[in-house]
Design a protein around this nucleic acid. Sequence first.
DNA 1: AAGCGGTCAGGGAACGTTCCCTGAGGCAGA
DNA 2: TCTGCCTCAGGGAACGTTCCCTGACCGCTT
Lengths: 331, 331
Amino acid sequence: MRRPTLHAVAARAGVSKSSVSRVINGEPTVAPAIREIVMAAVAELGYVPNGAARNLVTQRTNTIAIIVSDPPAGLVSDDPMFAMVVRAASRELESAGKQVSLMLAGSDESRLRVEKSLAAGDVDGAILVSMDGADPLPAILSRTGLPIVSHGRLATPGLMPWVDNDNHGGATAAVQHLLAQGRRRIATISGPLDMTAAQERLTAYRETLKDTGRRSIVALGDFTRISGADSMRQLLEDDPDLDAVFAANDLMAIGALRTLRQAGRRVPDDVAVIGFDDIEAALYAAPALTTIRSPMTAQAVQTTQLLLNLLTHGSADPVVLPTELIIRESA
Amino acid sequence: MRRPTLHAVAARAGVSKSSVSRVINGEPTVAPAIREIVMAAVAELGYVPNGAARNLVTQRTNTIAIIVSDPPAGLVSDDPMFAMVVRAASRELESAGKQVSLMLAGSDESRLRVEKSLAAGDVDGAILVSMDGADPLPAILSRTGLPIVSHGRLATPGLMPWVDNDNHGGATAAVQHLLAQGRRRIATISGPLDMTAAQERLTAYRETLKDTGRRSIVALGDFTRISGADSMRQLLEDDPDLDAVFAANDLMAIGALRTLRQAGRRVPDDVAVIGFDDIEAALYAAPALTTIRSPMTAQAVQTTQLLLNLLTHGSADPVVLPTELIIRESA
DNA sequence: AAGCGGTCAGGGAACGTTCCCTGAGGCAGA
DNA sequence: TCTGCCTCAGGGAACGTTCCCTGACCGCTT
């Protein structure tokens, strides 16, 4: 009781398998009468072309890998970025008729798996999501010659096209907003410095403060809520007189709000807080979080389009998307 | 400049392709001398077996589909559930040596794509995530005869094994906690009623209140923050004297907190709020959210294991995981 | 009326594996 | 020494498509 093959359909319809193949693939050079009889046989037998056989002969799989760097297991990872980026990219790929293969790249073992899978021809191309700068994967994978794009700029330039948002401009706007409010001791909670987004946001913070002759106060987080809370505690200890904090993403800003609340500091009266990303939770924070909106969904969509272009036209250029200051209550 | 094939490796090593195949697949019946010479040739040529050819002849793909119901495009969807479940299931599948194919099932079109893909033999099995009861997909897919399991109980029983958490027990505990605090007018914000989790939580709420002779006050949400905020507004309008709210998930509870804050009600003094799920954001809410912990990661892991069992042993039974009351500040 | 071009169906090789089957060779037992 | 068994390498069919190439047939032009 096997699934019907092209051959079975051809026999049923009384035509050659070439003709059936032509009908299935919508080729125009087939007589209406034959087309009809074949379609009837297909419907009758419930025929669906075998994917593996097709992949083998065409040397393509119609599948795109979404490769996401995975934190060590056990870590809480309800990262809104993951959900939004993976969802948006998948949607876009699916409506372009591509299948989506999700690969997590955490351990060395999993990185090897990814490498083999691309080498095995399991996919036609790949989207790399938020690789950190220390990760050797982008360099290795770019050597396969497959079309690959990156969601987020890579530490090593020139390996592949990418789409990122204007981290430098956004962070500059954030710090300038705090300065414009008359804040004098402005600290920052940075992301992990092996990620370019974290680097760019930190650099912009430093440069903007330097221009006004103020000193930097930096705590190092890792883009999670808990690291934001911890970093905020640290900052309060180091510099009890600070009156503003720029967190390199909203998750850490939300963690910082919690610490400030526990420490009895009023936001924004005692300490202003500004985040980055404008995730939905920012609107529901207490007080509602002032932040820099980064177009997450648009970025994912553009990254996908970049790959699709690369697939069809063979070339693609990096893209930088603008950010926007969203003023709410926290700063 | 093609990628090397089994044939090329065989020629290079001076053995038959059968022997190479045996070495690649780790079969024991091969002489050490041959094994060594083959491995050397493999390394030298950088050979990686072609996935499509292997899939074709073995009639298996080593790929599992994760099928997630997708809200209409445009909707904000940073759902922590998506991230945690997809991540945990992927990790588990990958460490079992399976590839992961992610499929979104939103529109009729995408549902058809999923159906065809399973029929085409693109995957060896599938995990359905949080299908709503109105979705015809589970019934259709279960007819393919492929091993399929569901993350979350389905409306139609018996179609396939599933793993769920104890929604009824959890919701009962939540309402009893509010009662024990002396709350008298306890409202609920329900999830979308075509999802079994929402149904079960609502039923438990109703039954528990009925046992103490109190009346139900129900608003209908859809598991998003904004619907929680809207429903809370509605509830305050309908019954200004309510002194407690049980939200069917944390996201809606967080939305409700915002509305209460805007309405000037103190939590928990004026109104107690309790959620469900214990997502990480619950800890960072202001006030910190009392909630029912549902073991999201464990549920995803167990669902995956259930599928892997089904694949190897051919049978599997439904699983219900316990929940736990987490008392914080909001109730 | 004959030739030529164009349209469209069919045959069959090829894609790169796995796996069954055959058979070679070696070793032990009689 | 010969037979028989056991181990292990090689040959080749099969998996289910696509696509190239051949050739039939029809209609139009000269």
